[in-house]
């Protein structure tokens, strides 16, 4: 059977590859692209950070922007986390800067799914907890506009931030419930919500009930 005709299943390991991670993930993990080797002297136009070391993932993203074209000309990052966390931030930096760089509007719309697709998929339990780079990026873009004085272009994170440490929004929880997570434990397995900021757990439980009723009656 022709592999390319099969629909791409981004949640499963790529068939035909041995091991836990895809070859692309391994490539970016062992040879990370664009990571910030030396912060000194690097003049970023915007910076964003998400996560905490206690949760097991921290991502920091720096961008340089061409003000004429609003395109990202450079992206640097640092990540504390597992192989998929490092590989996904590395891949995101490549996606942002290839082909002359993404515009800020395009960059804002990068989703974890887009990064995973380029990585050739991630093991199921790695998906939500390790791909946080897009959130750090959106913070960096807002930071850029703030520094530029273009306050009107700052976009508050779509949805409401529930977990202030991990920047997990009600949308993330909605998505997890839609994917079948119907208990706090299952939603946590997908999103890690509440591990950095346990005070939000009662609200998370409420949201799970709300979305369960909304979608599953």
């Amino acid at each position: 059977m022709n592999q390319s005709q099969k629909p791409l299943d981004i949640t499963a390991r790529q068939s035909g590859q041995s091991g836990f991670y895809s070859d692309v993930v391994k490539e970016h993990f062992f040879h990370p692209q664009n990571f910030m080797e030396n912060e000194e002297g690097y003049e970023a136009d915007g910076m964003g950070m998400v996560g905490s070391p206690a949760c097991g993932d921290v991502m920091r993203v720096w961008i340089k922007v061409d003000p004429q074209t609003s395109r990202i000309t450079d992206c640097k990052w640092k990540t504390f986390g597992c192989a998929s966390a490092i590989a996904s931030t590395s891949m995101m930096s490549v996606m942002l800067t290839e082909n002359g760089g993404m515009t800020l509007d395009q960059a804002r719309n990068i989703k974890p799914q887009d990064i995973m697709e380029r990585l050739g998929g991630l093991p199921v339990r790695k998906i939500h907890c390790s791909v946080l780079g897009d959130k750090a990026l959106r913070m960096a873009i807002n930071d850029y506009y703030r520094r530029q004085g273009e306050i009107d272009k700052i976009e508050i994170e779509q949805g409401r931030v529930i977990d202030k440490v991990l920047k997990i929004t009600d949308h993330d929880i909605e998505e997890a419930v839609l994917e079948g997570a119907d208990t706090l434990e299952k939603v946590q397995n997908k999103t890690k919500v509440g591990t950095g900021d346990p005070s939000c757990i009662p609200e998370v439980e409420q949201l799970i009930r709300f979305y369960k009723e909304k979608y599953f009656g």
Binding site: F30, G81, C82, A85, K126
Partner: peptide, 25 residues
């Protein structure tokens, strides 16, 4: 300042097999 699974996999690439107490693994 580092995460165990990442270190474990870098060691694996050097032919060294160990384990980690990290949640990621």
């Amino acid at each position: 300042d580092i995460e165990g699974e990442a270190a474990m996999l870098y060691l694996d690439a050097k032919g060294i097999a160990c384990s980690t107490g990290s949640a990621c693994a």
